[in-house]
Design a protein around this nucleic acid. Structure first.
Lengths: 354, 354
DNA sequence: ATCATCCTCCAAAACGTTTTCGGTACAGGT
DNA sequence: ACCTGTACCGAAAACGTTTTGGAGGATGAT
């Protein structure tokens, strides 16, 4: 009976060029009102099991899928979140863990039926679209951002915006925004402690640029470990640069030329650490016999170099995953917070006892 | 005069919790109809310069930005394209060039005002959402996909769908879908030719898995070069595996154990090539003195190993960029096609004369 | 018999645009 | 004086949903 109607609907349009079927078609075919179809499909209580079942059957028979645009218009929620990945397009610095974080974000959001829309913020773009405009343009329900520098103009906007937002590695917590990170000071503390336990007394620190919040936290852990152990902190042992391999190379050379007594170096990223290792070799130093090097991140590359790199592993996938989860939490009305994901010291071949 | 109205509008809502302003507000404040505002803002001809100017002023004063959802509902175009990245979440295989391709896609689409929405297709998902449903759910205007295997069920759907689509490295051209790739047979031909010119006569081939279209094309080039030069092709010199480092490692060992006369190996990816180099070292062979190795892709890693890897560079960013451009072309009514982006033989330290 | 209550269901409003169709006013040509 | 054309503008329909405010009928209590 309603099968006939379906057939008629089918026939109304060409075979392949079948017009988009809407809720109206389903209603007609099922012999109920539009309202009822919507109700049935959205699991409202006030529809009898019988009609609900019929609606479901007809809907799937017609291969109906609701128009998310129309729905979004009325509900003003799009089940979409905006993802800001900064510095993504800086050629040569395709940060190896960005993809992992991205995967994590996706994994958590997909479960909840959210999709991701990519906002790339190329630094050096003519005019930067204001943060809130990004949201307004695409009507995303929330935002996730990583790769931002502390000096980025977005930072200030985010601090005062009223958009549910989760950041990675940027310590901001407001009524709307929370952030995810490793416990950088503890991680750094552990790394230094490990070196000290190996007998090293003069340990240098190649830190990331001062535009990254993590740089300060890691410096903190570095200081604390040295002070706690009674060795004391020396300004001259710390040097800063961006997170690239070249940066690590240059820093290492400078650091060891100025302080030849250094026997171990803590480096704020694996990429830099690998650069540092290269510098060591070029300076005629053996790793780890003459100098121990310990990195940060644990990227794939860390196991591909000789010797393999001792490092502090960050759970990059999990950082992303948690970002998604926490955003969902905020969207459900939860309170934004700082959530930390555990790190782990991974001991490989680039460190040894003094 | 209209300034007052604006003030009134402003006052109507709390300071920060200012309600969303719509086209209606702009119309009221500018003293024209909704229609006129829409026309003025969308650069229609039939509106006087005077009113147009006023509308623009009021709109920017009110900080108005049109609701893209509402617009999408009526125009049924969303200025959004869907991006399918397959195998993105396979842990341990965060293909290093995915991010570069992604950047390229973004770069080209952003110019045209398109945004990207990420569809991740985790292999091994419970139920795979049909290709067309992906589009219908999010109402994207077109699709770009990379990382798909030839055996992926999507392939068949794509072949018969009527959604503007561009693929990378998957040779399908229909009225709706085109694809971007390097000229793999030529690239492979050149690589072998180069090895032959170095004096090598027994050159093996570690190919990618047979689920990748490129594997066949590269095999083609390999064969042709050998046959053209009169050396001839031998089945036993070719071995297949996935594109991982371990795959490369194992293949190399097997290949050289079975054919110790081989003096040069062409490897279908840098990751595999690096695995092969490791295997060579483990077998007591020096690279390039005992065996030359040439890779494919030119990922960053290629310059980080010792010796640095000779390889065929693929323009990963450009592959993505072109995918975006070609999709735009199709969306504008252009004919889908195969567009090839140039490759380049990069000679480094892993190859030498026999 | 009457009334309140519950269960189903529906008509219509609303969401914020774009687009269609037409209307007004003014100019110029006859 | 009349028609024609042109330039500008507006009312209303349309897009496909969700949501609001009942309506109709059955059931149970009084």
């Amino acid at each position: 009976m309603c099968g006939e109607i379906i057939m008629k609907l089918r026939k109304r349009f060409g075979r392949d060029a079948m017009k988009k079927i809407t809720i109206k078609d389903v209603a007609k075919a099922a012999g109920v009102s539009i309202t009822t179809v919507s109700r049935a499909l959205n699991e409202y209580p006030d529809v009898s099991d019988e009609t609900r079942e019929k609606v479901f059957r007809v809907a799937s028979e017609l291969n109906y899928s609701p128009n998310s645009i129309a729905r979004g218009l009325v509900t003003s929620r799009t089940n979409t979140i905006g993802l800001i990945i900064s510095e993504m397009i800086k050629p040569g610095v395709y940060h190896p863990y960005v993809l992992e974080q991205l995967s994590g974000v996706k994994a958590s959001l997909r479960k909840a039926g959210y999709d991701i829309i990519l906002f790339t913020v190329d630094p050096g773009m003519q005019e930067v679209t204001p943060f809130e405009k990004l949201r307004d343009d695409r009507k995303v329900d929330g935002m996730i951002a990583f790769g931002l520098r502390m000096s980025d103009p977005y930072i200030d906007e985010i601090r005062h915006c009223s958009i549910p937002t989760v950041l990675i590695d940027i310590p901001i917590v407001t009524d709307y925004v929370g952030y995810i990170s490793s416990d950088n000071v503890e991680a750094s503390f552990e790394a230094i402690e490990y070196l000290l336990n190996l007998g090293h007394r003069n340990v240098g620190f190649i830190n990331g640029h001062k535009d990254a919040a993590v740089s300060f936290e890691r410096l903190d852990g570095y200081k604390r470990a040295l002070i706690d152990s009674g060795i004391g902190y020396r300004d001259g042992y710390v040097i800063y640069d961006d997170f690239t391999q070249e940066g690590g190379y240059n820093c290492f050379k400078q650091l060891l030329q100025e302080n030849p007594e250094i026997t171990a170096v803590f480096v704020a990223s694996d990429l830099m650490a690998i650069g540092a290792m290269k510098a060591a070799i070029d300076m005629g130093l053996r790793v780890p016999e003459d100098v121990s090097i310990i990195g940060f991140d644990d990227i794939e590359l860390a196991t591909m170099v000789q010797p393999q790199l001792t490092t502090v592993r960050q759970e990059k996938f999990k950082l992303g995953y948690m970002a998604g989860e926490h955003l969902l939490h905020i969207l459900k009305g939860g309170k934004p917070d700082h959530v930390v994901v555990p790190h782990k010291l991974i001991i490989r071949g680039s460190t040894s006892a003094r």
